[in-house]
Structures are given as structure tokens and as C-alpha cells.
């Protein structure tokens, strides 16, 4: 029967253990993508082969499902002789896919800074490093916080897909509990609430960053 408190008391610690894995995956993915996406965005802005390569990478990862990328890394690489753990495969696939989205977010942010801002900085005698750190990047950061927050929420939800390669995070653990107990409602409720808490935390963090970094346009 639903809302069985005894059952929930046993379920919750297990789900929280899974939540730890989920948070680890999500935080690592977000941190890596913040760097990797920036590298890809800079590469894409160059002319020539490097630019095409970065552009091709973005199109490929954005237009194929995460799940297929994950299977490719998990099963494909193990056939090639350098097998990765489920966690590492999931992390790699999450970073591959979201790196493409984050690169696009950076690109949008960089494009939103008008060439006149660069001119104004240069006219004041700023050299490249000073120009980027004082004029360009603060504006880019302010503009990418909202889309980056959405992307982080999407990353948290995407981590549930690593259940398909047997990583014991929230999703996989709740699947196991559903199979071994008759309390489907409660497991669903617990898992959903934990995901809601995590995504709300991300959204709140984004809101706080916004308050800190954005300015009247």
C-alpha cells in the first residue's frame, strides 16, 4: 500500500546513496563541460580545419541520443580492449554530449558582446588579456548564466540514463526496489522527490549567480 512509512524509512537511505552518485556525476559533468565547452567554442571560432572539426563535433553530439553515445563508449570501447567502468563511460558520454551544448551557449554569449565593446576597451589602451578579463568575459558570464542553469538541470536529469549501463544511481536503485517490493508508488515518489530537490537546488544556485553577476541591460 502507498505511503508506508516503514518502507519509506528503509527506502530513503538507499535512494540517498544513489543520489550521491547522481550528484557526483552531475557535478563532474558540469565542471568538465564548463572547461571543455569553452575550449570547443574557441576552437569553433577559428578558421580552417580546427573550426570545422569543432563545428562537426557539436553537430554530431547534439544530433545523436545520449543513450547511443553511452552504449558506444561502454560496450564499444570494451570491445576495443580499453574498457571503462559504467561510471566512467557515463561521465565520458555526458561530457561529450553536453560539451556540445555548452559550447553553443558560450558561442551565444561571446557573440552577444558587441564589437564596439572591444573597440572601447582597445581605445583605452587595453591589451588582449585585460580586454577579455575586464570587458568581455564579465559580460559573457552574465549572459550565459540562465542557459547554463537550464543546461545543468538537464544534466542532472540526463544522469538517470547511466542506469542503462548499470551504474547504481537514483534511477537504477529505484528500479531494483520496484522489482523487489510491491511498493511502486512509494519508490516513484521517493525518486521523483529527490530529483526535484536536486533540480530545484540547481535552479536556486543559478538564481543566486544571476543576482551576483547580471546587470541592467
Amino acid at each position: 500500500m502507498p505511503f508506508d512509512l516503514n518502507f519509506l524509512a528503509r527506502l530513503l537511505p538507499a535512494l540517498l546513496e544513489g543520489a550521491e552518485v547522481t550528484v557526483e556525476l552531475a557535478v563532474l559533468t558540469i565542471a568538465i563541460c564548463l572547461v571543455w565547452g569553452f575550449v570547443v567554442a574557441l576552437a569553433q571560432a577559428t578558421r580552417g580545419p580546427l573550426g570545422w572539426l569543432a563545428g562537426g563535433y557539436i553537430q554530431i553530439v547534439r544530433n545523436t541520443p545520449l543513450l547511443i553515445q553511452m552504449y558506444l563508449v561502454y560496450f564499444g570501447f570494451s570491445m576495443g580492449g580499453f574498457g571503462l567502468s559504467g561510471f566512467a563511460s557515463g561521465l565520458l558520454a555526458l561530457c561529450m554530449q553536453n560539451g556540445g551544448y555548452v559550447a553553443e551557449i558560450y558561442r551565444g554569449g561571446l557573440q552577444s558582446v558587441s564589437p564596439r565593446q572591444y573597440e572601447a576597451g582597445r581605445a583605452l589602451g587595453m591589451r588582449r588579456w585585460t580586454l577579455y578579463t575586464t570587458v568581455v568575459l564579465p559580460q559573457v558570464i552574465a549572459r550565459i548564466i540562465p542557459p547554463m542553469t537550464n543546461q545543468s538541470i538537464s544534466i542532472i536529469k540526463d544522469t538517470s540514463q547511466v542506469a542503462a549501463i548499470a551504474v547504481m544511481e537514483i534511477m537504477k536503485i529505484s528500479e531494483v526496489w520496484v522489482e523487489t517490493s510491491a511498493n511502486t508508488y512509494d519508490v516513484f515518489l521517493g525518486a521523483a522527490l529527490i530529483y526535484l530537490a536536486l533540480t530545484s537546488a540547481a535552479s536556486l544556485a543559478g538564481r543566486l549567480c544571476e543576482r551576483r553577476f547580471t546587470f541592467a541591460q
Binding site: A120, R122, G125, M126, T134, Q139, A216
Partner: peptide
């Protein structure tokens, strides 16, 4: 850059840092 620092320029569109 050093030379530009000795020249002040004011633009049509202000170009203040928002």
C-alpha cells in the same frame, strides 16, 4: 596599446561597459 592609452576617444554610441 601603450600609444592608444595616450589618446582619448569618445564614440557616437557611447560604448560604456554595461
Amino acid at each position: 596599446a601603450a600609444a592608444r592609452a595616450t589618446i582619448g576617444m569618445v564614440f557616437q554610441s557611447f560604448n560604456l561597459f554595461p
